[in-house]
């Protein structure tokens, strides 16, 4: 994608302002990102020192109805970094619209790959994949220990509702908003409502903790990114989410993100968190996770269909929903319908 010279100039000026020294941009390139943001890799030199930085900018629309803005994401990453979670070091946040049009944040570049298809397949990452389940469990325990009370912007279950009840309410609301009459999704909602786990504490969740949002190098998990879906929820929800088939990137028999089995991950989490995890509740959340992702896929397609955001990628998600629907049915069958 051609980079407007103006864009480079504006970033240079911004970096000079925040570092207080002359900055030379050696290279500026786009990185793989989602449909809701763009991500740039900046290689710069200031005061004789070379540095690599990542810039993430909001695009005018967002992937889901409830996402955090860049400033909130920046605050979370900063707190996570301080809590010893492996996150790239957050550097600056800018909300001034006249710099790049939209708010953006800048953090330190972390070496490694994050694309799921590469994480599950690259030969040089074999050892990393062996380590990942335990690293993921240990890191997730650290995230769930973060002080949720210091972030008043995090969405969470409404008063009187458990995280699972809240999730079902949201799925139902999305189906109504979309006007979808799909018996498989109706059955999924019904099944989930009839199998709700009792209670469930609400802790700070990363919100999208899975292969694809991890920067992985040969030594394993180097950085956890994409904090924009962070919210309050059930710890078991986030133990189930990285197990969803869609996050296995074609490596379906390895339940944990196409890289390993679930059990070492949960055991590492239990050791690090001190919690005892009921596997049955994790199973429940994997079913609910597939239901939620199936409905979200339809919602994404609807942005193309009805909300004026012409995008072949968004449109294609509508027909991907059936993958999550079938997976949900298969998981329900394992529970005995």
């Amino acid at each position: 994608m051609p980079i407007p010279t103006d864009f480079r100039q504006r970033i240079t000026e911004y970096l000079e302002a925040v570092t207080g020294s002359p900055v030379e941009i050696i290279s500026l390139q786009t990185m793989a990102g989602g449909a809701s943001r763009d991500t740039w890799l900046i290689h710069m030199r200031a005061q004789g020192q070379e540095e690599r930085l990542v810039l993430r900018r909001d695009l005018p629309t967002s992937m889901l109805d409830r996402t955090l803005d860049r400033e909130q994401e920046f605050a979370l990453m900063t707190a996570a970094h301080a809590a010893g979670v492996r996150v790239p070091q957050p550097r600056w946040f800018c909300s001034e619209p006249h710099i790049l049009g939209e708010p953006f944040l800048i953090y330190g570049y972390v070496e490694g790959v994050s694309l799921g298809a590469q994480v599950v397949s690259r030969p040089e990452l074999a050892e990393a994949r062996r380590r990942l389940p335990e690293q993921m469990g240990e890191q997730l325990a650290r995230i769930h220990r973060m002080d949720a009370a210091s972030f008043d912007f995090l969405p969470g279950p409404r008063p009187g509702y458990s995280p699972a009840q809240e999730a079902v309410l949201q799925v139902r609301a999305m189906l109504i908003r979309l006007g979808v009459q799909n018996p498989t999704l109706a059955f999924g909602v019904r099944w989930v409502e009839r199998h709700l786990p009792a209670g469930g504490e609400a802790v700070l969740l990363h919100g999208d903790f899975r292969v694809g949002n991890f920067i992985v190098s040969e030594s394993g998990l180097n950085g956890i990114v994409d904090w924009e879906f962070s919210r309050l929820g059930d710890p078991c929800e986030e133990l189930a989410w990285p197990c969803l088939r869609d996050w296995r990137y074609g490596n379906g028999s390895l339940r944990l993100g196409g890289i390993g089995q679930r059990e070492p991950f949960i055991q590492a989490y239990e050791r690090a968190s001190g919690r005892t995890i009921d596997r049955k509740i994790v199973d429940f959340w994997e079913i609910l996770g597939n239901l939620r992702w199936a409905v979200t896929a339809l919602s994404q397609a609807n942005r193309h269909l009805a909300q004026g955001e012409t995008s072949v990628e968004l449109a294609s998600l509508g027909r991907r929903s059936a993958e999550m629907q079938l997976e949900m049915l298969r998981l329900i069958a394992e529970q005995g319908v």
């Binding site: 018996p183 498989t184 059955f187 059936a322 629907q325 079938l326 049915l329 329900i332 069958a333 319908v337």
Partner: peptide
């Protein structure tokens, strides 16, 4: 359940 499974597979 059998109906839903068949429908998902057809999709």
């Amino acid at each position: 359940f059998e109906h839903l499974l068949a429908t998902a597979v057809e999709q």
